[in-house]
C-alpha cells in the first residue's frame, strides 16, 4: 500500500514540475528536491526494521559489532551521496555531482579502513 503513496507523490511532483518549468525553472528544482526528501523520509522508517533484523542476525552469527556499524555508516553515506548527486545532475551541474560522488567515495574508503586491515591480517595468516 505504501508503494501507491510513493508513486502518487512522484507523479504529483512530476506534474507540478512540468507546470512550473515554463514560468520559473528554479522552482521546479525545489519541487523535485521536496519530493525526493518526502519519499526518502517515508521509506526510512521501514529501513529501521531491516537494520534491527541485521543486528540480531549478526549477533547470532557472532560477527563483530564494529564491522556491522561500519557497514551501516557506509550505507547511510551512500544514500545521502546518491541523493545529492541525483539532485545536482537534475539541475545540470554534473561537475558538482562528480565532486560530491568523489567526496563520498573517499569518506567511505576512509571509514572502512579497519575492515580492510582486518581482512589483510586474515589473509596474511592464511599464507604460511
Amino acid at each position: 500500500m505504501e508503494i501507491v503513496k510513493i508513486i502518487g507523490i512522484g507523479l504529483v511532483s512530476l506534474i507540478l514540475i512540468v507546470i512550473i518549468k515554463q514560468y520559473k525553472p528554479e522552482f521546479a528544482l525545489y519541487v523535485s528536491l521536496g519530493a525526493g526528501i518526502i519519499i526518502i523520509l517515508m521509506v526510512l522508517d521501514k529501513l529501521l526494521g531491516i537494520i534491527q533484523l541485521l543486528t540480531t542476525l549478526s549477533q547470532k552469527a557472532g560477527i563483530n559489532a564494529t564491522y556491522l556499524s561500519i557497514l551501516l555508516k557506509i550505507t547511510g553515506i551512500a544514500i545521502l551521496t546518491e541523493f545529492g548527486v541525483s539532485i545536482c545532475k537534475d539541475a545540470g551541474e554534473t561537475a558538482v555531482a562528480n565532486k560530491i560522488e568523489f567526496g563520498g567515495k573517499i569518506i567511505i574508503i576512509s571509514i572502512s579502513i579497519p575492515i580492510i586491515s582486518a581482512l589483510l591480517e586474515v589473509i596474511m595468516q592464511l599464507i604460511p
Binding site: 502518487g8 507523490i9 504529483v12 511532483s13 507540478l16 507546470i19 512550473i20 514560468y23 520559473k24 522552482f27 521546479a28 525545489y30 519541487v31 521536496g34 519530493a35 518526502i38 523520509l41 517515508m42
Partner: peptide, 17 residues
C-alpha cells in the same frame, strides 16, 4: 504534512511568476 509541501512550493512559484 507531506504532499502539501509540494503544493505550497508550486503555489509560491506560480505566484512569484
Amino acid at each position: 504534512m507531506e504532499i502539501d509541501l509540494l503544493f505550497k512550493i508550486a503555489a509560491i512559484g506560480i505566484l512569484v511568476a
